[in-house]
Nucleic acid binder design. Sequence first.
DNA 1: CGACCATTTGAGCATCATCAACACTAGTGG
DNA 2: CCACTAGTGTTGATGATGCTCAAATGGTCG
Lengths: 246, 246
Amino acid sequence: MSAPQLQAVQCADCPIRHRAVCAKCNTDELETLDHIKYYRTFEAGQPVIWSGDAMSFVGSVVSGIATLTQTMEDGRTQMVGLLLPSDFVGRPGRDTAAYNVVATTELVMCCFRKKPFEDMMVETPHIAQRLLEMTLDELDAAREWMLVLGRKTAREKIASLLAIIARREASLHKETVKGEMVFDLKLTREAMADYLGLTLETVSRQISALKKDGVIVLQGKRHVTVPDMQRLMEEAGDDSDGGFLV
Amino acid sequence: MSAPQLQAVQCADCPIRHRAVCAKCNTDELETLDHIKYYRTFEAGQPVIWSGDAMSFVGSVVSGIATLTQTMEDGRTQMVGLLLPSDFVGRPGRDTAAYNVVATTELVMCCFRKKPFEDMMVETPHIAQRLLEMTLDELDAAREWMLVLGRKTAREKIASLLAIIARREASLHKETVKGEMVFDLKLTREAMADYLGLTLETVSRQISALKKDGVIVLQGKRHVTVPDMQRLMEEAGDDSDGGFLV
DNA sequence: CGACCATTTGAGCATCATCAACACTAGTGG
DNA sequence: CCACTAGTGTTGATGATGCTCAAATGGTCG
């Protein structure tokens, strides 16, 4: 159960080619990246890096999901990022990790040693440009999230999270975000609680409530059907159709 | 009481020269900026731009304070950014504002029309580089803030806000963040509440409590003395000396 | 089967929101 | 000069939302 498909994938064939930090690179630039990249895999539950540790690499999530979390001494933890395929990990110019990164599912990352990557960023505006775009998008997402954390009720928080996941799912498959949507929750109740600043009990209760009210339908604990996205977004407190920043 | 000191300041003499988006520019580049920039002033309480409005410019805060807020239809509002001198407003490549920007004090901004600025970003890597750095810093700040919103108690939230303001004050004057600190709160109780996801009553109560317990001393409503920063940071729930990302 | 984990559900309680009254200050106009 | 108003802040009483502690359920894996 360790290190599956570590064979060198060509950048040109990479599944996240058009969304990751390398999205704007031309053929020559991709070839350079091909030489300095390497893959790493992590099993579900495994830490990728711990806050404060030396960080010798940066990289992109190729497949799987990871979480970015912050913790206080007494153990309270807050998720501050949910890393999906194509998301970037690490900050050029910083040499210790600022957050905990943990693989939630089996995870494949495309890594670059920090120094060569930083060198390449200087020579390759395409990479820096793309990283700026991605960082601005993340900042928007973080600000959306701050509204959820600061001002929404528990029920609205759950509805918001489901809407966000549904939206990302849709954007990945280039589907529409209207009508019915079906997806798997790849997070535990506890991870959702850490995402939303709730306890896992409250998460469980509110999911049950949304189910009872017909806003969602569950098959098992994790497989979600949303019969009417419009209804879900109303429950989330979002105005009718705004907030499509993904 | 309108449009004070609108005389053209030379970029080279600009008070935010070394921290703003132009920080990395050389003399030639500054001269170009000198030609396309213009100043705008806003009175305290005046909106700079409203979410959804067309945004024809980007710019930097030169002096004063502005807030970035998001609101829900029913009026609940969450601050998602506190803009101090040198902070950047607007997103290159986006043509409508995503947030409300409001001047909290009298405000002077150094503006660039969006198109010329975007053109210049392409030709001038120094600007794009600096904008990336600043955006990454903002993202870190937003994530710190998410921990505050999601997991801290009301008392810890207030202590955290005071610590953040003290830290920024110190970094502006290049002072140390140890021992005693004195500063003015440039925010109303309501603005603090919107920052922290609380009500203004709770803000008021917790400030009173911190005062009663000797963590802070107040002269008037807004002038704060922190006798012992270490103590304040303990109240904020921050580990002894970490979290210095400013 | 038994151990373990994720999840659900219940009961009681603490924190913070809500509603309301009041204090203080500055500005306005009679 | 003084009432009048608007804005800001403090404080009190009450209650709802979500947390804490606790127990039970169901699924998975050895």
